[in-house]
Computed example of a mutant assay.
Amino acid sequence: MTGAYVALEDGRVVEARARAPGRSRGELVFTTAYTGYEESLTDPSYEEQVLTFSYPLIGNYGVREERFESDRVHPRAVVARELTDDVAEWLTEEGVPAVDHLDTRDLVVGIREEGAMKCGIAAGPDATPEAAKEELAQCKGMSEHTDIGSQVSVAEQETHNADGTGPRVTLVDCGAKGSIVSSLVERDAVVDVLPYDATVADVRHADPDVLFISNGPGDPENFEQARALVEEFVGNVPLAGICLGQQVIAGALGGDTEKMAFGHRGVNQPVRDLRTDKVVMTTQNHGYTVSDPGDLEVTQVNVNDDTPEGLESEELEVITRQYHPEANPGPHDSLGFFDDVLALADERVVNTAD
Score class of each variant (00 low, 15 high):
267 V>L: 14
63 V>P: 03
327 A>R: 08
231 E>K: 13
271 V>F: 00
155 A>Y: 07
78 V>E: 04
203 V>T: 12
136 L>G: 09
160 H>Y: 15
11 G>V: 10
320 T>C: 14
117 M>D: 04
59 G>T: 13
146 T>P: 12
108 V>P: 07
289 T>W: 10
228 A>I: 05
140 K>E: 15
20 A>Y: 05
71 D>C: 07
211 L>D: 08
150 S>G: 12
142 M>V: 05
230 V>M: 07
153 S>M: 02
184 L>C: 09
231 E>H: 02
237 V>K: 01
142 M>W: 13
172 V>M: 09
158 E>R: 15
292 D>V: 06
38 E>V: 09
73 V>F: 08
157 Q>V: 14
29 V>S: 01
236 N>C: 03
107 L>N: 08
125 P>I: 10
137 A>N: 12
74 H>S: 04
195 P>A: 13
245 G>I: 03
301 V>Y: 06
340 D>W: 01
111 I>D: 02
156 E>A: 13
176 A>E: 04
102 L>W: 00
185 V>Y: 07
80 A>V: 09
95 G>C: 03
292 D>H: 03
313 S>P: 00
293 P>K: 06
131 A>L: 07
169 V>R: 07
188 D>S: 00
9 E>R: 05
139 C>D: 06
281 M>F: 03
181 V>M: 02
284 Q>I: 00
260 M>F: 04
99 V>G: 00
154 V>Y: 02
204 R>Q: 13
188 D>R: 01
49 Q>L: 15
202 D>N: 13
71 D>Q: 08
13 V>H: 03
209 D>I: 09
256 D>W: 10
167 P>G: 04
335 L>R: 12
161 N>M: 07
169 V>T: 12
309 E>P: 03
154 V>R: 00
301 V>M: 09
55 Y>W: 13
77 A>Y: 00
342 L>C: 04
316 L>D: 02
121 I>G: 06
52 T>F: 00
24 S>C: 09
140 K>C: 09
174 C>I: 05
351 N>S: 14
21 P>C: 05
94 E>Q: 15
246 Q>C: 11
329 P>L: 13
290 V>F: 11
153 S>C: 01
150 S>C: 08
174 C>T: 04
347 E>I: 04
351 N>M: 11
110 G>S: 14
145 H>I: 13
158 E>M: 12
100 D>V: 01
197 D>S: 14
22 G>F: 05
283 T>V: 02
111 I>K: 10
292 D>G: 00
257 T>H: 14
332 H>M: 06
